[in-house]
């Protein structure tokens, strides 16, 4: 599904962001990507959705080998992924419904099928009643649910979430996390970058930890360790 093999990533001005990172995430898995800010969590995700090119090594995502992927393949890759960010990235001048529909429209979905699909995912994230609300009329948690609905509407095989609860209060955090667990339970793989260790401890999911660009711990490979030792 997602396979990193000896991946290095250097930024022109920022030095090495990833050093020799290798891991494999299988279909339907739920994986936490943890580490301090600047450890390389976002970089890993950016390589997965081809926002940044790989410097060396190999990244395979859903059948695409990213080093070989041509520019015109990138949109096709992204249609198989759902992506959620800390800052939601909704279009402020469109309603919740229009924001979700947008993701279908840009991928050329059949127009007649759009309203039903949009309603279905909005119902799934518990926001059917607020379909006509604009982002500014929604709470942070609700905005993140709209963003998740948008990520889900194309029926991705993997949902990438970069600090999805970073801007949310505790209650909203729990709600969004539960939603991600439900999504995972229905078969979609979830890769969630977070530094919220309480969240990580709550669930028995795989943990991949990065430190200064290096993979220092992978619970699928390494011995379980004393949780107090992790950052």
């Amino acid at each position: 599904m997602i396979k990193f093999t000896n991946v290095f990533k250097a930024f022109p001005k920022g030095g090495l962001a990833l050093k020799d990172v290798s891991f494999h995430i299988a279909k339907g898995e739920f994986v936490f990507l943890t580490g301090h800010s600047g450890a390389g969590k976002s970089t890993v995700l950016k390589l997965v959705y081809a926002e940044e090119p790989v410097t060396s090594g190999e990244v395979r995502v859903s059948g695409f080998t990213l080093a070989e992927a041509r520019r015109k393949d990138i949109p096709m890759l992204r249609r198989r992924l759902g992506i959620v960010f800390q800052d939601f990235r909704l279009l402020e001048d469109r309603t919740a419904e229009e924001n979700v529909a947008f993701a279908l429209e840009v991928t050329g979905a059949r127009r007649a099928s759009i309203p039903a699909r949009v309603m279905r995912v909005l119902t799934q994230v518990g926001l059917a009643a607020k379909a006509h609300a604009y982002p500014r009329e929604l709470s942070g948690g609700e905005q993140q649910r709209v963003a998740i609905a948008r990520a889900l509407v194309n029926e991705p095989t993997v949902l990438l979430a970069d600090e999805p609860t970073g801007n949310l209060d505790e209650r909203a955090t729990r709600g969004v996390f539960q939603l991600l667990r439900d999504i995972n339970a229905s078969g979609t793989a979830v890769v969630m970058a977070t530094h919220d260790l309480d969240l990580v401890r709550q669930a028995p999911y795989r943990v991949i930890e990065l430190q200064e660009g290096a993979l220092v711990y992978d619970s699928a490979v390494d011995e379980p360790r004393d949780q107090a030792a992790s950052p």
Binding site: P75, M76, R78, I83, R89, L91, A103, V106, R150, N154
Partner: peptide, 17 residues
């Protein structure tokens, strides 16, 4: 530009944008 970035994230082709 924000809108362009979002369009691309959800898989819009360059031509579409």
């Amino acid at each position: 530009s924000r809108e362009i970035a979002i369009m691309r994230l959800v898989g819009a082709t360059n031509g579409f944008v």
